[in-house]
C-alpha cells in the first residue's frame, strides 16, 4: 500500500523539487566556465540583488527616520542605512492617524476566513468531479476551466451593482444590499475556479484503489474525502492556501469600491488616508512596512511552499 502511495503521488510531488534542485545544467564533465566569466556572472547577480532588494531596504530604513532626514539622505548611501535620528515616531504617528489595529484585524479576518472556506468548498467540488464522478462531470469541469480566462477586473463593476441587489439573511433578519459589509469582501471569493482545478489535478494523481479499499471497509464518499484523500493532499492544500492568501491580503480594487465604512476596511485601502493632506513619507513607509511584514514573515517561514505554489500555477499551460 505504501508503495502504491508513493508512486501515485510522486507525479505531483515532483514539483516540490522545483525550488530545490538546480538543473543539472551545462556545468558537467570539466566544462567549468572561465574565471573571468564566472566573476562577471557573480557581479551581475549581485547588481540584480541590489536592484530588487534595495528599494525594499530603503522603505524599511526610511520608516525609522524623520521626513527631513529621509530627503537629506537621498543623495548618498545613507538612504539605505539606519543612521542619524532613528526612532519609532513614524509608527506612533501611524497609530495616531488611522485605526491601524482595526484595519489589520479586518484584513486578517477576511483573509483567513476566505482561505479556510476556500479550501473546504473547492476541494469538495474537486473531489466530486474527480473521484466520485457523475454524468456531466466533464462538462461541469469544462465550464469551470473556461471561466479561467475571465479576469476579475472585467466583472468588478457589474458585480458591484449585483452585490447591491443581493439580499442577505443575517442575525437582524433579511437585509438588502451587500455593500459595506464583511461578507461582500469574503463570500464572492470563496469558490475559485483555479483552486478547484488545482485540487482536481492533485486528486487525480492519488490512486483510486484507495477508494475501493475504503469502500470495502464500509466507508462512504464523505469519509473517504475527509479521512483518506484530504490527509494525503498536503501539497495541494498548501498551494491553494498560498494562492488564495496572497491576492486576498493584497486586495485593493474591490474593497475600495465595495466598502465605504472605515471600520470595515482592510489594510491596503488604508494607505489612501496618507495621500491626503500633509503627506508624511516617513509615516507612509512605516505603514507600508507594517502591512508588508506579515507576508514577508510567512514567506520566509514557508519559502519552499510559496515558490512551489507559484511554480505549480504555471503547469496548467
Amino acid at each position: 500500500m505504501i508503495a502504491t502511495l508513493t508512486t501515485g503521488t510522486s507525479g505531483t510531488e515532483g514539483l516540490a523539487h522545483v525550488a530545490e534542485t538546480a538543473a543539472p545544467e551545462q556545468r558537467r564533465g570539466g566544462d567549468r566556465p572561465h574565471p573571468a566569466r564566472h566573476a562577471l556572472g557573480l557581479l551581475l547577480r549581485i547588481v540584480l540583488c541590489l536592484v530588487f532588494g534595495l528599494p525594499l531596504v530603503f522603505m524599511v530604513v526610511s520608516s525609522f527616520k524623520p521626513d527631513l532626514q529621509i530627503f537629506d539622505d537621498l543623495g548618498s548611501f545613507k538612504a539605505f542605512l539606519p543612521t542619524g535620528d532613528i526612532s519609532t515616531d513614524n509608527y506612533t504617528g501611524v497609530f495616531g492617524r488611522v485605526p491601524f489595529a482595526q484595519f489589520m484585524t479586518n484584513s486578517v479576518v477576511i483573509t483567513v476566513v476566505t482561505v479556510v472556506l476556500g479550501i473546504v468548498v473547492n476541494s469538495m467540488a474537486a473531489f466530486a468531479l474527480s473521484r466520485i464522478g457523475f454524468r456531466g462531470a466533464g462538462a461541469v469541469l469544462g465550464i469551470i476551466l473556461a471561466t479561467l480566462i475571465v479576469p476579475f477586473e472585467t466583472l468588478a463593476l457589474p458585480l458591484l451593482w449585483w452585490s447591491n441587489q443581493l439580499p442577505f439573511l443575517g442575525p437582524d433578519g433579511i437585509s438588502q444590499g451587500w455593500l459595506d459589509t464583511y461578507q461582500v469582501q469574503i463570500i464572492p471569493f470563496i469558490a475559485n475556479a483555479f483552486s478547484i482545478f488545482l485540487f482536481y489535478q492533485y486528486f487525480d494523481s492519488i490512486p483510486k484503489e484507495l477508494d475501493e479499499a475504503a469502500k470495502v471497509d464500509g466507508a462512504g464518499w464523505f469519509r473517504i474525502y475527509r479521512s483518506i484523500v484530504m490527509p494525503l493532499s498536503g501539497p495541494a492544500i498548501a498551494t491553494v492556501a498560498i494562492l488564495t492568501f496572497l491576492p486576498m491580503w493584497n486586495q485593493y480594487l474591490w474593497p475600495l469600491m465595495a466598502v465605504q465604512t472605515e471600520e470595515l476596511r482592510p489594510v491596503m485601502v488604508g494607505i489612501d488616508y496618507f495621500k491626503q493632506l500633509n503627506t508624511s513619507w516617513g509615516q507612509i513607509m512605516a505603514y507600508a512596512t507594517m502591512i508588508t511584514a506579515p507576508v514577508l514573515v510567512l514567506f520566509v517561514a514557508f519559502q519552499r511552499s510559496f515558490i512551489n505554489s507559484i511554480a505549480s500555477s504555471g503547469v496548467k499551460g
Partner: peptide, 22 residues
C-alpha cells in the same frame, strides 16, 4: 451521484452567483 452533487453544491452556488451571473 447524490453525494457528488451535494459536495459540488456550495462551490456551484457560489460560482453561479459571483462568476457566471456577473
Amino acid at each position: 451521484t447524490t453525494t457528488a452533487l451535494l459536495m459540488l453544491l456550495p462551490a456551484a452556488v457560489l460560482l453561479i452567483t459571483f462568476l457566471l451571473i456577473p
